[in-house]
Amino acid sequence: MVTILCGECSNSPYVLKADHTFECIGCGNVVAPDRDLVLEYDETWAVSRDGILGYVTKPDVCLEDLMTAIEEFLTADKAPDAEYARGVSQIDATDALRRYIDARRAGIARPHIGYTRDQVQEAVNAGADMVLANINIGEPEEDALNLAVNGAMMCLEKIGSTFAEMVEEQYGETVEEVLSWWGWGK
């Protein structure tokens, strides 16, 4: 964590007060971080265990930097000086990891990586609705598309699911009943 020093006396940190403001321990200058101090887009406020105000790099930015450094390491052979490029990428990866650890130790939450089931379902359904709104197909084809959407969601939750398991769970019917909807079983 980078400690924020007082702008008035230039050498003392700010400590947390009961009213959620911070007071310089040297001169008594009081600040409210959200109102009085500006951070860069990739930084977030942090408070040490002893109440000192500081900032850290946001964990999601650290992880993005780490992934970039790894990709640079993996493609270093394409650089004019591959050994130098590998060395720089290792330094960058170490720095990104250090900044991530600093943020987590400062109590900043781990970023969510990936998508939730609800986000995936919303996207898949929106995609199906988009297709259905823009092409003129019949009801059997719409039902088939909806079966595919439900099948995808079933496979997301349980890889290796069968068609029979999906129609039982999603429709409460047997395979034979679903195939009979539009004469699909013939």
Rank of each mutant, 00 (worst) to 15 (best):
Gly87Phe: 03
Asp65Thr: 04
Ile101Gly: 01
Leu63Lys: 04
Ser180His: 08
Ile70Ala: 06
Glu157Ile: 08
Ala79Trp: 05
Tyr41Glu: 15
Gly138His: 08
Asp60Ala: 12
Met166Asn: 03
Asp42Met: 15
Glu176Gln: 13
His20Gln: 11
Glu122Thr: 15
Glu141Val: 11
Phe163Arg: 06
Ile91Gly: 07
Gly183Val: 05
Glu157Phe: 03
Asp60Arg: 08
Asp92Tyr: 09
Leu179Ala: 13
Glu71Leu: 07
Ala128Arg: 10
Met153Gly: 10
Cys62Phe: 01
Val61Ile: 14
Glu8Asn: 13
Ser161Thr: 15
Glu139Gly: 06
Thr94Arg: 13
Pro13Ala: 02
Ala79Gly: 03
Glu169Gly: 01
Pro13Thr: 00
Trp45Tyr: 09
Val149Met: 08
Tyr115Ala: 10
Val175Ser: 11
Ser89Cys: 07
Val38Phe: 09
Lys78Gln: 14
Glu157Gly: 14
Ala164Phe: 08
Val175His: 02
Asp42Gln: 15
Gly138Asp: 13
Met67Trp: 12
Arg99Glu: 14
Ser161Cys: 13
Asp143Trp: 05
Pro80Cys: 07
Ala109Phe: 02
Glu83Asp: 15
Tyr100Asn: 02
Asp19Glu: 09
Thr57Asp: 02
Thr57Gly: 01
Lys58Ala: 04
Leu53Pro: 00
Ala18Met: 08
Ser48Cys: 08
Leu74Lys: 15
Phe73Trp: 15
Cys9His: 01
Val88Met: 12
Glu71His: 11
Thr3Cys: 00
Ile108Val: 15
Asn125Ile: 03
Val120Thr: 10
Leu179Lys: 14
Gly172Pro: 05
Lys78Gly: 07
Gly51Met: 00
Asp19Met: 03
Ile113His: 09
Phe163Met: 11
Glu40Phe: 08
Lys78Tyr: 05
Gly127Val: 01
Thr174Gln: 11
Ala144Lys: 12
Gly7Trp: 00
Asp60Phe: 10
Ile101Phe: 08
Val178Lys: 09
Gln121Leu: 07
Lys186Tyr: 03
Cys24Phe: 00
Gly28Ile: 03
Cys6Asp: 01
